[in-house]
């Protein structure tokens, strides 16, 4: 169980990246520290997948790309069937799928309740 969605911050130039690279995309720096990407992110684009891969329980699988306040983006499953571009989502830890017999966990994104 992880609580915070972490990215990788270059110790040389400060650029935050996700996923991990072994050389910084800006300055080719080699040293990184983990950095939280944010509590909320905005939905950039999405799709409802009906032809789902094995190990996903039921269609549609709703996938989206979100953008955190610092500009770092991530792709993940959305817990809503009614996504709208621009809506605020927060990362929540949960089961993603089965790959073979193994259950895989990771961050999904759920709408931030209003009020």
């Amino acid at each position: 169980m992880q609580e915070k969605f972490m990215g990788f911050k270059c110790r040389k130039c400060g650029r935050v990246m996700y996923p991990r690279h072994d050389r910084c995309l800006s300055c080719r720096g080699r040293e990184f520290e983990e950095a939280e990407l944010g509590k909320e992110a905005a939905l950039v684009t999405y799709t409802k997948v009906y032809a789902i891969p094995e190990g996903i329980e039921m269609p549609p699988l709703v996938l989206g790309i979100v953008e955190f306040p610092g500009g770092v983006r991530a792709m993940g499953q959305l817990t809503t069937d009614d996504p709208k571009i621009g809506v605020k989502l927060r990362p929540v830890w949960g089961k993603l799928r089965k790959i073979g017999e193994k259950e895989v966990y990771g961050f999904k994104f759920e709408p931030v309740e209003k009020g």
């Binding site: 996923p19 999405y46 799709t47 032809a51 789902i52 993603l96």
Partner: peptide
């Protein structure tokens, strides 16, 4: 579909269930 999906990033894409049609869909949107 699964074999083609293994071209995607193993941690940041594949495990989430992304397929190539899903990527095309997000680009189209």
């Amino acid at each position: 579909t699964d074999l083609v999906s293994t071209m995607t990033h193993p941690i940041a894409e594949y495990v989430h269930g992304v397929t190539l049609p899903a990527m095309a869909a997000m680009l189209a949107r």
